[in-house]
Amino acid sequence: MPDGAPAHGAFPAAGRRSVSRYHAGRPASGSPLLEARSVSIEFGGIRALSDVSVRVEVGEAVGIVGPNGAGKTTLFNCLCGQYCPARGSVWFDGKPIDGLPSYRRARLGIARTFQRVEVFPEMTVLDHLLVAERARRGDGRLWKDLLNMSRVRRDELDRIEAVLGLVGLADMAATPVGALSLGHCRLVELGRALCLEPRLLMADEPSSGLDTGETAALADLFRRVQQEKGMAILLVEHDLDMVARVVDRAMVLDFGELVAEGRLDEVMADPLVRRAYLGRAG
């Protein structure tokens, strides 16, 4: 980590940005893409996370597993700026991002999906991706709208259709998302996140609501974006088969604590981990 850590002000201004400024540059040599150091948070006296540290290298796929209520979603929320951890700090690309609101973290190149789907029910699938596409480019000037310069352009459509094809929603582009099944809503969220062309893609239980065939296709998709676009992936998932297919490395959370870290098969063999899982089974 660089010692003279830049203050928040050192970030590119939150306003308009160019794609290249955020997505091209490699991080300072050796520093991980995302690093959380001893993050703790509590709700009404109950520790949801205690001293959790996470590292995700550039282009790496990391899985987080653990029983329900272990704090996985809470960790995501701390990383993305929805929650403000009580202690600890989060670094992205070699700089601390504590205190940055979630929209600025998104602009730095962190995209996520939600366990409890967060879609815009009245908008079509295509509009979801269009919003993401324009948000990535920093669009959204009022005068452009008023001069009717905000119509959908061909190049935007091409990019969106490519992503739609990738997540398998090509034939649902014009469907309002409110009419989709839960599994498809998750795919919309994923497509939306992919449209941001993030450097780190965080997915919270993306396979719930999908059947086995769809889950397998989803795992392939994660692999593809990781390999082809160099996206780092942070995956929270209950389906261990899927985790095994996607991640390079896994971490196990239990009761808000990191109990194991390493290759998935090794981690799952750990007696502590087995107890965490089996202890809850009853």
């Binding site: 967060e118 815009f120 919003v131 990535r136 939306r192």
Partner: peptide, 16 residues
């Protein structure tokens, strides 16, 4: 419309 549908998601896309 995105903000109306889900402020959390809208912010997660980088919308101020």
């Amino acid at each position: 419309a995105a903000m109306r549908g889900s402020p959390t998601a809208a912010a997660s896309l980088g919308i101020n």
